[in-house]
Simulated scan of single mutants.
Amino acid sequence: MENTMASLALRNQRALKAGQFAWDYSDPECREAFLDTQEGQEWLHENAASLVQGLTVEEITHEQLVDALDTEVIPSIDWNMNGRLLAILLAEILKNDTHPLFISANQFLGGTRDKKIQPLRDLAERMLAKKADDYCRRLSEEDYD
Rank of each mutant, 00 (worst) to 15 (best):
73 V>S: 06
74 I>G: 07
81 M>H: 12
142 E>Q: 12
67 D>N: 08
68 A>P: 10
53 Q>C: 07
105 A>F: 05
93 I>A: 00
29 E>G: 08
5 M>K: 15
4 T>P: 01
62 H>A: 08
8 L>K: 07
141 E>M: 14
31 R>T: 03
7 S>G: 09
94 L>M: 12
103 I>L: 09
71 T>D: 08
73 V>C: 07
17 K>S: 08
67 D>E: 14
92 E>W: 07
41 Q>M: 10
80 N>Y: 06
117 I>S: 01
74 I>H: 12
107 Q>A: 07
97 D>Q: 07
107 Q>G: 05
121 R>K: 09
67 D>S: 11
95 K>L: 13
22 A>S: 06
27 D>G: 05
20 Q>I: 03
23 W>I: 08
144 Y>P: 06
145 D>Y: 15
87 A>H: 05
15 A>P: 03
128 L>W: 00
66 V>S: 04
124 A>P: 00
140 S>W: 12
20 Q>P: 00
74 I>M: 13
115 K>I: 08
21 F>S: 02
16 L>I: 07
63 E>M: 12
78 D>G: 12
87 A>V: 08
27 D>S: 09
127 M>N: 11
68 A>I: 12
92 E>G: 07
73 V>K: 02
95 K>W: 07
92 E>P: 00
74 I>A: 12
75 P>R: 09
101 L>M: 10
47 N>C: 05
62 H>M: 06
142 E>N: 06
28 P>V: 04
3 N>G: 14
1 M>C: 13
110 G>V: 03
